[in-house]
Amino acid sequence: MSAHLPVSRRGLLKIGAGVAATAALAAEPAAAAEGRFELTAPSTSLLWRKPLYDETVLQSFAFDNVNKHIYAVQVKNGSGSSAAGHLCVTKLSLTGAILGHMYLMSFGHGVQIGVEPSGTSAYLWTETEAKVIDGEIRGTKLARFKFVNGQTLTPTSSALTKYTLVDGAVNTTCTVDPSTNRLVTRYWDGSRFRLAAYSLSAVKSGSKEELFDVPQPTGLGTFQGYAAYGNFVYILTGNAYHTTNNPPPGNTYTHSVDLRTGKLVQRARSVAGKSLDYREPEGMGIQIVSGAPRLCLGLASGVEKARLASIFYKTEVI
């Protein structure tokens, strides 16, 4: 594990406009922070080999930066496979202690989620109404619901508010940018994946008007999650270690995509947690610490039926 590079004074000035909105996600969208994360900077460990509520592979995670919690998603124990679309959400402290859980039945694959803090509680944004698409179970709509420890939800639960932002879109997921109060989605339009950004407050008011909508760059690798900060979306790709097909340090890459143009502006290999066994990249998130952002990526490790979750972060902004 490498020590992280401190955020420069120039970087802090650039991100200042974005982090001002973190404690008030219900407010109007903030101006997007300038600059982007330097993907070649070393990574630092936040969580190391922590168990989740169930014992399956971590799929994705997101931060409640107001109440200082992490929400992690995985396939529910006993589902047989991800084909059922049943998910488990684990609420964690920032040190990895399990604080609660929920089950989401027939929601999807859990590729990425978003968190919207609300007072001392949090609302989660996920995919829902799972369907088999090209042999894989994927969500076809987005859902917003309050995290309630011990609750089990289905796509027809009254606790859900569901959204269709792009008519006809399938394989749709989302994340929340804590610096701009934007809901950023990834969806399949029938021919390719696209990335779109919306005002979170506008979406909740019934608007479908996008701020940006660009094609996702192709040829990045196996998609494993994404996060948004300012005018950039960060994408995680890669596969679990394999003795012959993907030996250590593996094929995990992070990518930076400009939401305004759809241009891939940086791609860098990540060797964070390279000593982990299995080591499959899973999910991204933005953590805010003392007003400064961290770009985080998740890694699954451990043996089958006893998987563990690790999170690493970068801090350098250019």
Score class of each variant (00 low, 15 high):
Thr175Trp: 02
Val184Gln: 08
Leu183Ala: 09
Ala159Asn: 14
Thr126Ala: 11
Thr172Lys: 10
Pro178Lys: 14
Trp188Asn: 11
Ser179Tyr: 10
Trp125Lys: 08
Trp188Lys: 00
Trp188Glu: 03
Thr173Ser: 14
Lys146Met: 05
Arg182Cys: 14
Arg182Lys: 12
Ile137Ala: 15
Asn181Gly: 10
Gly139Cys: 10
Thr152Cys: 11
Leu124Pro: 05
Thr180Asp: 13
Gly190Gln: 01
Lys146Ser: 07
Leu142Asp: 06
Gly139Leu: 07
Thr185Pro: 13
Arg182Glu: 13
Ile133Tyr: 05
Leu124Asp: 08
Leu142Ile: 03
Thr185Asp: 01
Pro117Asn: 05
Arg138Tyr: 00
Thr126Tyr: 00
Gly190Thr: 05
Gly168Asn: 04
Thr152Gly: 08
Leu153Phe: 12
Gly119Phe: 09
Ala143Val: 06
Glu136His: 11
Thr126Trp: 06
Thr180His: 05
Gly119Asp: 07
Ala122Thr: 13
Leu153Ala: 06
Tyr123Gln: 08
Gly139Trp: 00
Leu124Ser: 07
Ala122Lys: 01
Ser157Asp: 00
Thr172Trp: 02
Arg144Asp: 09
Phe193Val: 06
Val166Arg: 13
Ser121His: 15
Ala143Trp: 10
Ser179Ile: 01
Glu127Asp: 07
Ser158Leu: 15
Pro117Gln: 11
Gly168Leu: 04
Arg138His: 08
Tyr123Met: 12
Leu142Glu: 02
Val184Asn: 12
Thr140Leu: 05
Glu129Val: 06
Thr173His: 04
Leu142Ala: 08
Thr120Leu: 07
Phe193Glu: 03
Val148Asn: 02
Pro155Lys: 15
Trp188Gly: 09
Thr120Cys: 01
Trp125Thr: 03
Leu124Gln: 03
Asp134Arg: 08
Arg182Ser: 12
Thr185Leu: 10
Glu129Asp: 06
Ala122Pro: 00
Lys162Ala: 06
Trp188Ser: 05
Ser158Lys: 15
Lys146Tyr: 10
Pro178His: 02
Gly119Arg: 03
Arg138Thr: 01
Glu127Ser: 08
Ser118Gln: 13
Asp189Cys: 01
Ser179Leu: 13
Ala159Tyr: 13
Ser191Phe: 07
Asp167Gly: 13
Leu153Asp: 05
Ala143Ser: 10
Asp134Gln: 14
Ala159Asp: 11
Arg182Trp: 12
Thr185Ile: 13
Asp134Ile: 01
Thr173Trp: 12
Thr140Gly: 05
Gln151Val: 13
Asp189Tyr: 01
Ser158Cys: 11
Thr156Leu: 14
Asp189Thr: 10
Ala169Cys: 14
Asp177Gly: 09
